[in-house]
Design a protein around this nucleic acid. Structure first.
Ligand SMILES: [Zn+2]
Ligand SMILES: [Zn+2]
Ligand SMILES: [Zn+2]
Ligand SMILES: [Zn+2]
Lengths: 144, 144
DNA sequence: TTGATAATGATAACCATTATCAAAATACGT
DNA sequence: ACGTATTTTGATAATGGTTATCATTATCAA
């Protein structure tokens, strides 16, 4: 059932916007969700290639963009020049703690930090629209 | 005198590492410092081109990298795929509040947030090495 | 001055992502 | 089911920022 809700959202978005459904979109959505991580387009292609070697990288990019539009996915841009995609459905907002050795991602959330951010923006006359907080460090396993 | 100290640092680094000095490096350093902002390599080239049209973009990239190595400069990677360079000498650590309409940069610093970041990292068994916090919003001038 | 080495500039290469476009798939009214 | 308009796809070219290459030039110590 985890896929079921997301598929309904995707199909709803397709219907509402007079788009057309395709098998590729379902395959990509499933591969993305079951990967269960912050994945790049290239990594996703490698997974999909095993069972569907004929799905092109352009379609993967297009579909991930579509998933972002219908609120199933979010782009995560770090400092390595690659865009990662993460599932958003049933996920609260969060920031990231990333191990620079093994690449592990930990999702973090600090209501205090979130509150302080708003305060700082207000103090500077800004209307805060979004923010990105990335913490980089060495995880427990890697520091042994 | 502002340039004087930075030039001394650059020349010290060059001497210590058995590199060779060049007029280009001095020109690029001065243009960078006097621009006084978070500047891209391309923007810097446009400024330099006026008086030194023969300095190539590759040399600008190489020199900015060198300035980062000797602690005069820091790379700032936002989400638009361009690297910005900002002066570090005599600048405390800070994060950024950026207007998504006009591109204005405001340097911010919250000791509370910095402290909370360390706490979160520790709680997750990480040794915190660095962090990036970017706040995006609409500045006062742009929201009128 | 010479010789060794580093720096430069032009440009090719790189790499992730996006655009292009002909062919295939889809949806819908008949 | 058929025809047709429209969307999607996949291969590949193009893009844009950055880095690598390499022949030439500049620097510097002996
Ligand atoms: Zn947050
Ligand atoms: Zn996440
Ligand atoms: Zn900070
Ligand atoms: Zn700054």
């Amino acid at each position: 059932m985890p896929l079921h809700n997301e598929l309904a959202i995707l199909n709803g978005y397709i219907r509402k916007n007079n788009l057309k459904s395709s098998s590729q979109r379902g395959i990509i959505l499933e591969a993305f969700l079951s990967s269960n991580r912050h994945i790049t387009a290239d990594e996703l292609r490698d997974i999909i290639k095993i069972e569907n070697p004929n799905i092109g990288i352009a379609t993967i990019y297009r579909t991930m963009k579509l998933l972002c539009e219908c609120g199933l996915c979010r782009e995560l841009i770090l400092e390595d020049g690659k865009t990662r995609f993460e599932a958003v459905y049933d996920h609260e907002h969060h920031d990231h703690l990333i191990c620079t050795k093994c690449g592990a991602f930990v999702e973090i959330l600090s209501p205090e930090i979130e509150k302080l951010q708003k305060k700082i923006a207000r103090k500077n006359g800004f209307i805060l629209k979004s923010h990105r907080l990335n913490l980089y460090g060495i995880c427990k396993a890697c520091s042994k």
